[in-house]
Each structure stands twice: as C-alpha cells, then as structure tokens.
C-alpha cells in the first residue's frame, strides 16, 4: 500500500518518529505541572517537555490561551492535559495538585511560570491593590504551589521544582517595584526551599530570564518599537526567545542537573555581564 504524504509533513513525521524511537526522552515517565503554561515561556516549556516524552499538565487562568496551546501541543504528543486555575487562589492550587496526583499517581516536575507584571509609578504612588495583585500571584501563589507539590514529590521519592524568576529580581526594575520585589522574593524562596528539601530528594531551582519575546514583554513595553530598541542595545542584538528559556528550564527539570539545587540561573544573553539594563 502506498500512502501519499506531503514532503514537509513527511519530514515532520520522520523527525517525530526519530525523536520517539532513537532519543530516550529526557522527561520520559515524568509528570510535569506547568503553571502559566498556556502562553509565553510557559507555552514553550509545555511544547519542549512534550517533545522530551514528559506528561504535561498545563495550568493557566487564560481559557483562550489554554485552548490554543492544547491545539499546538497535541500535534507533538497526546500526553497533555489542562486545568483552568488561578494560582493566587489557594483552594484552586490545592485542587490542581490533588487532581494531578489522583490522575497520574505522582508529580515529578513543577514549573512555576504563572506571573503578572503590572506597571506602577514611583514608590509613593504604588497602590495597595497593585501590590496585592502582583504579590498574590507571583509570590504567594508560587509559594502555595510549592507547598502543596512538595509533600507529593517527597512521597514519590523526589522531584524538581523550577521557578521562573526574572532578571528584575536581581538588578531591580523601576517600572514596577512590586514586580521586581516579588521576583527577588522568588529567588530567595528558591534558596530556602532548597535548604529544606534537597535532603529529601527535591531539587529546587530558579531561572532568571532577561528580555524575552513574549506577549507579556511586548505588551509591557507599551510600544512595538520599544522592544526593538532593547534588542539594538543587547550584546546579541536581539532579545531572547521563549524556546531558549524552555531549554534552560528543561535542563533544570531533567536529571542532567542532578547536582544543582538552590540556584538561580541567569539567562539573559549576556546583557547583565555587558553592563546592560532591563
């Protein structure tokens, strides 16, 4: 029997067969929960993890983005599910961890990618509700995702948590004080959690991305041209791709980083070393 397949489709098919047959997936048999997994860096992580054989649960509050992400993700692998949840709501967080473990029996990787960036004026003008909106998702929500995931990981013999922080948590960001403080908090939270849980088999690390081409970055730059200026001043003459962050996060999630815990990995294309600014 001859099956006619278009050339580009055939190439894709062959690549996928190759990936499945010859490459032992770096996340085979791992159940991975990705908050904020429906857009930006989170979506890139979802796709990359599926390519490496992981089972992925996408968590997001953005229903439209979940739908779109699942459509793309299912062309890579069928091992993907979604949960609509807002990580700043603790009952929803508890629920999402419980339903994941109920369904798959274990949880091996948690990527905390859910975050909001609300721009604010100088400190004296920052409103309480702006502070709360940012902190409740970026820091409190992230903490409670860890809180409920950690005992499950310990129970099944270990795991890896990767928190998506930001270079703004290291060098500050004057367009949103609460955001950069929340990200500095994530970096320190990573450090303390690792102190507590590395000995129980859970590695906890963070990645601190520089300027990355996502809807969030484009949106917060407030003008399409603004990011082009950032790119021109960058040592690589470009901003980063979400897929490049997914590689760093894959490294931290997988066994390849088996001796790394408590660390925050800067991934900014050399901009900080080059004296660049956010």
């Amino acid at each position: 029997m001859i099956i006619s397949v278009k050339k580009p489709d055939l190439d894709k098919l062959l690549i996928r067969l190759y990936a499945h047959n010859n490459m032992p997936g770096r996340l085979n048999n791992k159940v991975c929960l990705i908050t904020g997994g429906a857009s930006g860096i989170g979506r890139a992580v979802t796709i990359r993890f599926l390519e490496e054989g992981g089972t992925v649960v996408v968590v997001d509050r953005n229903r439209a983005a979940i739908k779109e992400t699942l459509e793309i993700a299912r062309t890579v692998s069928t091992k993907v599910e979604s949960i609509e949840a807002d990580v700043s709501k603790l009952d929803q967080v508890e629920n999402m961890i419980r339903s994941t473990v109920d369904k798959f029996g274990h949880l091996d990787v948690l990527v905390n990618g859910a975050g909001v960036l609300v721009l604010t004026q100088e400190a004296e003008h920052v409103e309480e509700r702006e502070w709360d909106l940012i902190m409740n998702t970026n820091l409190k929500g992230l903490f409670f995702c860890c809180k409920y995931a950690l005992p499950e990981m310990v129970r099944s013999g270990g795991g890896s948590i990767v928190n998506i922080a930001s270079i703004t948590g290291i060098q500050g960001y004057s367009r949103s004080l609460p955001y950069s403080v929340s990200k500095a908090g994530v970096i320190h939270l990573t450090f303390v959690l690792a102190n507590q849980y590395t000995r129980r088999g859970v590695r906890v690390n963070a990645v601190a991305p520089g300027s990355i081409d996502t809807h969030q970055a484009r949106g917060s730059s407030q003008s399409v041209g603004a990011l082009d200026i950032v790119a021109q001043n960058h040592p690589m003459k470009r901003i980063g791709k979400a897929s490049e962050m997914a590689e760093v996060i894959l490294f931290l999630a997988s066994e390849e980083s088996s001796f790394i815990s408590g660390e925050t990995i800067l991934a900014d294309g050399g901009s900080w070393a080059g004296g660049g600014h956010v």
Binding site: G210, E244, E247, F251, E256, S257, I260, E263, A267
Partner: peptide, 24 residues
Amino acid sequence: NVILFLASDEASYVSGSTYIADGG
C-alpha cells in the same frame, strides 16, 4: 552534563552566567 548544556546550542541565550553545581 552542566558543561555540555552550556557548550551546546541549547544555551544559546546564556552568557555571562555562573552555574553553581554543588548539590544544594
């Protein structure tokens, strides 16, 4: 493994970074 990651194109947006691998 850490050195391989940094050497490969997977780390294409990583430069000027320090990776501490001390097992926590």
